[in-house]
Amino acid sequence: MGRKALAAVTFENVSKTYDGKVSVVDNLNLRVKEGEFLSMLGPSGSGKTTCLMMLAGFETATSGEIYLGERPISRVAPQRRNIGMVFQNYALFPHMTVAENLAFPLRVRNISKADIAPKVKRALEMVELAHLGDRLPAQLSGGQQQRVAVARALVFDPNLVLMDEPLGALDKQLREQMQYEIKRIHDRLGLTVVYVTHDQSEALTMSDTVAIFNFGKIQQLATPDEIYETPCNSFVAQFIGENNMFSGTICERGDGVCKVRLANGDQVHALTVTDAPVGATTLLSLRPERIRIDPPAADGWTITTGEVIEQIYVGDHLRVLVRVFGGHEFVVKVQNRSAGNGLTPGQKIRLGWRASDCRALDAAAGQAGAA
């Protein structure tokens, strides 16, 4: 079995610089498996879109090689890579009908006229737009235009589909609907998809695997639940979802758990993720939904007292802002079980969490890459 036989895409020691000094992508090694839906997620300027553009052939790597299967493609023209592409702005030809837009990539590939019509019909049926083939793009809604863009990327049976912020121009409800539609198409056809987004919820909802980028490097590559539940460093913890982050000094280590002394003298137990020694500073990460109000008095729990600052009603849950540990402000998410879940500002409450839900990470989260 070949070195890349199980991979649809391989980035091997790929770097990209525009000025010879700053690496936009820094020695990237990444394998995307056949049939995988991989999302590249990160702040602006983190390198994710540059990776996608190099894979598509619109940018050239400064060093390293990119493979489609076993085939190196750095010197292969974009139109010869057999890659479908979906852009945020749809990039549809306004003077062509929907069917003509889909026929265009087939014509440039010299597909016979006899084969074009059934391929267009099949692609439109995939996105449930078979009845709109005669319309112009301007006569469609934003969601319909995005479906056409997806169909056009699929119409020539590509080896790989790339999507660059494809849902960014849609409103929230339509964006969520399209997330599920794209994921269903991926599952039904067994496509390999590389998807770029800055939307965390989108990446977690749609992906088999998520690559978190910062400063041109992958900070963590894992499944959505691993990214959210077990961030490997403080950048990922701060970037994904909502977290209560607070720092302290490691005073004990052992058996995967450490004891951390906070600035006010309080001590908490946490799962040890950092390899920092005793005496070093650590940044602690604690999800708001992992904190319990009036927790049980049980081994392995950190129990403290906090003062309610405010409570915000969000519908399915309440967001309670609490002052703890002499000044830290924690967000606590409480499930809304009844309309009488009232906490008042100034009220003292007991709260706590399991040591396994609090993660001791590296001390510095770092800054997001600049655009």
Results as ranks from 00 to 15, higher is better:
residue 65 E to V: 12
residue 7 A to E: 07
residue 279 G to H: 13
residue 313 Y to G: 02
residue 21 K to E: 15
residue 7 A to V: 08
residue 90 Y to E: 06
residue 14 V to D: 00
residue 194 V to Q: 02
residue 30 L to D: 00
residue 332 V to T: 03
residue 134 D to E: 12
residue 91 A to Q: 06
residue 10 T to H: 06
residue 194 V to A: 01
residue 8 A to Y: 05
residue 285 S to R: 11
residue 68 L to C: 05
residue 268 V to M: 02
residue 62 T to W: 03
residue 330 F to K: 08
residue 140 L to W: 04
residue 77 A to P: 01
residue 340 G to R: 15
residue 314 V to C: 11
residue 142 G to K: 03
residue 352 G to E: 05
residue 236 V to L: 01
residue 82 N to Y: 07
residue 235 F to E: 00
residue 227 I to A: 02
residue 49 T to E: 04
residue 114 A to V: 13
residue 64 G to H: 05
residue 326 G to P: 09
residue 17 T to V: 04
residue 23 S to M: 15
residue 161 V to C: 04
residue 214 N to F: 02
residue 304 T to V: 13
residue 310 E to A: 14
residue 131 H to C: 02
residue 90 Y to T: 00
residue 39 S to Y: 04
residue 135 R to D: 03
residue 2 G to E: 11
residue 212 I to F: 04
residue 244 N to T: 01
residue 65 E to F: 01
residue 271 L to Q: 14
residue 138 A to N: 15
residue 86 V to Q: 01
residue 87 F to A: 06
residue 162 L to D: 03
residue 4 K to F: 12
residue 311 Q to S: 14
residue 87 F to H: 11
residue 210 V to K: 05
residue 95 H to I: 01
residue 312 I to R: 14
residue 32 V to F: 07
residue 76 V to G: 10
residue 84 G to Q: 08
residue 360 A to G: 13
residue 97 T to N: 01
residue 172 K to N: 04
residue 227 I to T: 08
residue 155 V to E: 10
residue 135 R to S: 03
residue 28 L to Q: 01
residue 239 F to S: 08
residue 219 Q to D: 08
residue 9 V to K: 00
residue 176 E to N: 10
residue 300 G to M: 10
residue 350 R to Y: 10
residue 315 G to Q: 09
residue 302 T to K: 00
residue 69 G to I: 04
residue 238 Q to E: 15
residue 118 P to S: 11
residue 81 R to N: 08
residue 40 M to N: 04
residue 64 G to C: 06
residue 206 M to K: 09
residue 248 G to M: 03
residue 256 G to P: 07
residue 323 R to I: 04
residue 310 E to N: 14
residue 69 G to H: 06
residue 10 T to C: 10
residue 26 D to E: 12
residue 228 Y to R: 11
residue 8 A to D: 05
residue 251 C to A: 11
residue 325 F to D: 02
residue 217 K to F: 00
residue 282 T to H: 01
residue 330 F to P: 00
residue 209 T to R: 12
residue 61 A to V: 10
residue 273 V to F: 01
residue 3 R to Q: 13
residue 187 D to Q: 15
residue 1 M to S: 09
residue 343 L to W: 11
residue 16 K to C: 04
residue 239 F to D: 07
residue 180 Y to I: 15
residue 97 T to D: 00
residue 331 V to G: 11
residue 331 V to M: 13
residue 345 P to S: 11
residue 191 L to E: 03
residue 147 R to C: 06
